[in-house]
Every structure is written in structure tokens, then in C-alpha cells.
Computed example of a mutant assay.
Amino acid sequence: MIKTIPVELGDRAYEVRIGDGLLGRAAEQLAPFARGGRLIVVSDETVWAAQGDALRTGAEGLALEPVLVPAGEESKGWAGLALVCDRLLALGIERKDHLVAFGGGVIGDLAGFASSVVNRGCGFVQVPTTLLAQVDSSVGGKTGINVAAGKNLVGAFHQPSLVLIDPEVLASLDPRQVRAGYAEIAKYALIEDAELFGWLEVDAPAVLAGDPEARRRAIAAAVAGKARIVAEDERETSGRRALLNLGHTFGHALEAETGYSDRLLHGEAVALGTVLAFAYSASRGLCPAVDAERVQAHFEAVGLPTRLSEVGLDAMGARLAGHMRLDKKREAGRVAFILAHGVGQAFVDKGVELDEVAAFLDGAR
């Protein structure tokens, strides 16, 4: 059975389809986007080696042209973008064509950005292969690359035409990657769904272990939450979409300090950043301490980092705050923080002083 979640964006509306075994039925899903029966698939070498044959088998009858980049965050930069765009043009891609982003968040961001600029824009379909990409980065149209100044600072809003999510492809994922993706599911609950968070506190082990029903429910809940917020505020103009950055302002600073490396995966940074956001909220009297403790206890229980010492960070608070000053969402020089009044009660605070954050982080360290 396929669960369909619409992303209501007027003439840019599309569907997110979730179903076990969807990769094995890729032909019927992707055929409408294959002009002349051909599709260009952007992927990385690791994903293609592990899942490429499954996609070819599922897309039998379609001619797939793979464009591969090395696996890892290093491919999501100027060189990776140039490689993909040059290859797309060499394959004769046209404006009315669609490419397929087949991989995790790096591939989705890179391929999505390439599709937004090559020939001044063509279409793309997201087929995410990691839990983090399935529940977060594949939905919403944010694409981009990393540059010397920071992560995702060059990019575009470019919505996909379709998102296909097959939870079965997660079976081969390393448990650490699954836990990192789970952090984004918990994030949606902590933003505005206390009931979902209560369910996760009980059933997170089943989600992480790959129980089909629990995993489908968790993925669908996260996607529905994001689709709802994106439909209300596609480009973060009203501030509503900014709520999706819960844990990210702290998390991106942590990623920058660890060099955007495997030392701290993005989902791990979001988990630790969310714990810090709740703890900071509690320190300011905005959130009950018991809720901040509850969030930390949950992430600890599922094996995600909740303390700076766990990821070997000994940077001074001022250094981490310095990374935050480069946040791409800053306005008039000020950084918007997503804080919380409690579980399921996130809000945007544009009045946070970074010196105060630095002092808090020194204490947390």
C-alpha cells in the first residue's frame, strides 16, 4: 500500500509517496518523467554500488543514465556541482527533462541545485535512500552546496516534481545513520506534536530496529509535518518554516567546528543542537526544566549524542557563537534561534544575544 502525502504549493504542488517495495516498482512511478524513455540518475558511487541494480530492475523498460560523484559531504561543493552540471549537459539534458536524485541528503541537495541551474532549470524527482533524507531533506525544495564560508550558503528553492520513499531501502543502512535520521523525526514532534513525541518515547526502539509498521508511521508523521509547514511558508517569509530549524543553529555551529566530517553526522548535530536549544530555553526560564531533561533523556536512550564532551568538542563558547554569526538565515545581523516553551511548543526568537549563548555554551561544556 502506498501512503500519499500532498505538498500543497499551487502550480508547484507535488506528492510524497511512501511504500515498502516502491523501488521495485520504480518504472510505473518514474515513467511519466522519462522523456523518450530515458532518465538521468544522479547518485554517489556507494549508493549506486549498493542500490543501483535494484533501481535498474525496478525501472525495467526505462533507460537510466547514471551520473556519479564520490560519496560524502565533500562532493557537495563547487567542484561537485561543476562535475554534475557538465555531465548533465554532455548527456544532452533539456529544460523539459527530469533527473532523479538517488541517494541521501548530499545527493538530494546537489542534484536538486544542479537541476535548478542547468539550462536555467529543469525538473527532478527525489528518491531518498537514507532515513534523514526521507523524512527531511527530500521534501520542501531546499537545495544547495557548501562553500568556504559555511554549509548550504549557496543554493536555491527548487521543488521536486515527486518524492518516492521506500522504507525497505533502509535495511542496508548502518545503525548510526539510522539514528542520525531518527533525530529529524523527533525534531518534528518536538516542534508541534507532543503526542507524537510521547509515542516515540515508547516506540523509538521499534522504529530504529526496522519494524515496518512503526517505521512507516514515523516517516509519514515527519513528512506530513514538514509538508504542512512548507505549504504555509515555502520560502521562510512568514517565519513559520523557520521552526524546522529547531536544533540547527546550534547544530550547524557544531558541524562547522568538527569540519563537516563523519566525526559528527548532521542528524547527530541536530540531536545535540536540539538538546542545547531546550536547555538554553530552560536556562532563560522559557521552558520547564523537566521538559529539557525529558528531551535529553530521550536522545540518550536512542544512542544520540547529548553532551559536547561526547563529540570531543572543547571549543570555547565564543568560537561556536562565531560560527552562528555566519548563519544564512540571519536578518540585520541577528540570528533567529528556535527555542521552546516545552515539548511540542517551539517558537522563533530573534532577540537572542550571541554573547549570552556563548556563556551558556561555556557552562554546557
Rank of each mutant, 00 (worst) to 15 (best):
Val118Met: 04
Lys76Ser: 01
Ser43Lys: 12
Gly108Lys: 15
Val163Leu: 02
Glu356Tyr: 04
Val147Ser: 06
Pro205Arg: 10
Trp48Leu: 14
Gln159Arg: 05
Leu339Pro: 05
Lys329Tyr: 13
Asp44Gln: 00
Arg179Asp: 07
Phe250Asn: 09
Ala13Tyr: 03
Ser172Gly: 14
Ala63Trp: 09
Leu196Met: 05
Asp327Ser: 04
Glu8Asp: 06
Arg56Gln: 05
Asp193Ile: 05
Ala206Val: 11
Leu246Trp: 01
Leu68Ser: 05
Ser161Tyr: 07
Val169Tyr: 15
Leu81Met: 11
Leu88Asp: 01
Val169Pro: 10
His323Arg: 01
Ala189His: 07
Arg307Val: 02
Ala221Phe: 12
Tyr14Met: 04
Gly24Ile: 06
Val207His: 04
Pro128Ser: 13
Glu300Phe: 03
Arg217Phe: 15
Gly259Leu: 15
His341Arg: 07
Ala59Glu: 02
Arg87Gln: 11
Glu94Met: 13
Ala218Tyr: 12
Glu73Thr: 03
Ala279Pro: 12
His298Val: 00
Tyr14Ile: 08
Cys287Val: 10
Gln177Tyr: 12
Lys329Thr: 07
Ile2Gln: 12
Gly333Phe: 05
Val127Gly: 13
Gly273Trp: 02
Gly312Val: 15
Val47Thr: 14
Pro128Ile: 08
Ala282Met: 08
Val7Ile: 01
Ala220Pro: 14
Ala297Leu: 04
Arg240Gln: 14
Ala204Met: 07
Gly155Ile: 04
Ile191Met: 06
His98Asp: 13
Gln177Thr: 06
His341Tyr: 02
Phe33Arg: 03
Gly181Val: 15
Gly10Phe: 02
Leu88Ser: 09
Gly21Lys: 14
Gly112Cys: 06
Arg228Trp: 02
Arg120Gly: 00
Gln29Cys: 08
Ser75Pro: 03
Arg263Lys: 15
Gly210Cys: 14
Glu353Ile: 00
Leu64Ser: 07
Leu110Ala: 04
Trp48Ile: 07
Asp355Ser: 14
Gly77Val: 01
Gly72Phe: 13
Leu304Cys: 04
Cys85Arg: 11
Ala27His: 15
Leu81Gly: 04
Cys122Glu: 01
Arg330Leu: 08
Trp78Val: 09
Asp314Asn: 13
Ala292Pro: 12
